[in-house]
């Protein structure tokens, strides 16, 4: 057994070691990005609420307009469930922005059902419960955290069983729904700052690369998404980040069409 005194001694030793090792190395003011490119890790997919948070700071967003709580279709194909799961989690973040507790709770249950459908329900049961509890208390920070944990747990469970491609589709579904809502908001009241939030060319490139590596998912919906991303890319890949109103409108039309295809059974 470790006595407190022994523990304290170790603690002090570690602290002394820490103090001695403090020695800041000044960072270069410029680096050659081209030299780095071979070592660059995959781009990290932001959560929908990262862009919603930035959008919110521009003011005047009535999030209740974008809340969606219909149960939607049920699918059996795992890639479709994965896409829908990402979309529904994004809907959860929208409901949090709108502070709509009943919808948040419904979405928590919907996410659980979809996760079960894809075989990873066990990993998120505690998070679904926590979402309900936090929504009842209107503790929106906790709901956000649990939605993040839900997505993380679902994707970790998928990765553990080597379903990385499904995990990427979850991210893609969330990104498409987030982009649809972002473009709807900016389309209603255009501003350069709002439109600039669409400047995500590397993220788009990441999704294009990932989709191209999924030939085994021979589905019309995925082919449609691939074609749509090819159309969207030049609209957002602008050197100065200034994305004009017609481009925002076009991206909105494209993402709205894809979102409808993801949540309905006709595709």
């Amino acid at each position: 057994m470790i006595t407190f005194a022994k523990f304290f001694k170790v603690n002090l030793t570690v602290f002394a070691g820490l103090a001695l090792s403090v020695q800041a190395v000044e960072a270069p003011k410029h680096i050659d990005v081209k030299q780095l490119s071979k070592k660059v890790e995959d781009v990290v997919v932001p959560l929908p609420n990262e862009v919603f948070g930035a959008l919110n700071k521009l003011g005047g967003v009535n999030w209740r307009e974008y809340v969606r709580n219909d149960k939607g279709s049920n699918f059996t194909e795992r890639p479709r469930i994965a896409l829908l799961l990402g979309t529904v989690i994004a809907d959860g973040f929208i409901a949090v922005q709108a502070e709509d507790a009943p919808t948040v709770k419904e979405i928590g249950q919907r996410v659980l059902g979809l996760a079960k459908g894809i075989g990873v329900g066990n990993s998120i049961t505690p998070h679904a419960k926590a979402i309900t509890e936090a929504a009842d208390k209107r503790n929106w920070e906790n709901v956000r955290r649990e939605l993040d944990r839900t997505q993380n747990s679902v994707q970790s469970a998928m990765n553990e069983v080597h379903d990385e491609k499904l995990s990427q589709l979850v991210s893609l579904g969330g990104w498409l729904r987030g982009t649809q809502v972002l473009t709807t908001v900016v389309n209603k009241r255009y501003s350069d700052e709002g439109a600039e939030l669409l400047h995500q060319p590397d993220l788009l490139g990441y999704f294009q690369t990932r989709l191209a590596a999924m030939p085994e998912f021979n589905m019309k919906l995925l082919q449609d998404i691939q074609a749509a991303l090819v159309e969207v890319r030049p609209l957002i890949d602008v050197a100065d980040g200034r994305i004009p109103a017609p481009a925002v409108k076009r991206i909105n039309e494209i993402t709205a069409r894809l979102d409808a295809a993801i949540i309905t059974k006709s595709q």
Binding site: V14, G17, L18, S21, L36, K39, V40, E41, D42, V43, V44, V45, P46, E50, V51, G53, A54, L55, K57, L58, E193, E196, L197, Q200, D202, L203
Partner: peptide, 22 residues
């Protein structure tokens, strides 16, 4: 190691790094 990250104007970010080798 370089990690590429999408950041949004209007947000404020912190990145924290740690290692267990003290």
């Amino acid at each position: 190691k370089a990690v590429r990250q999408q950041l949004f104007k209007g947000n404020e970010y912190w990145f924290w790094m740690g290692s267990e080798i003290e």
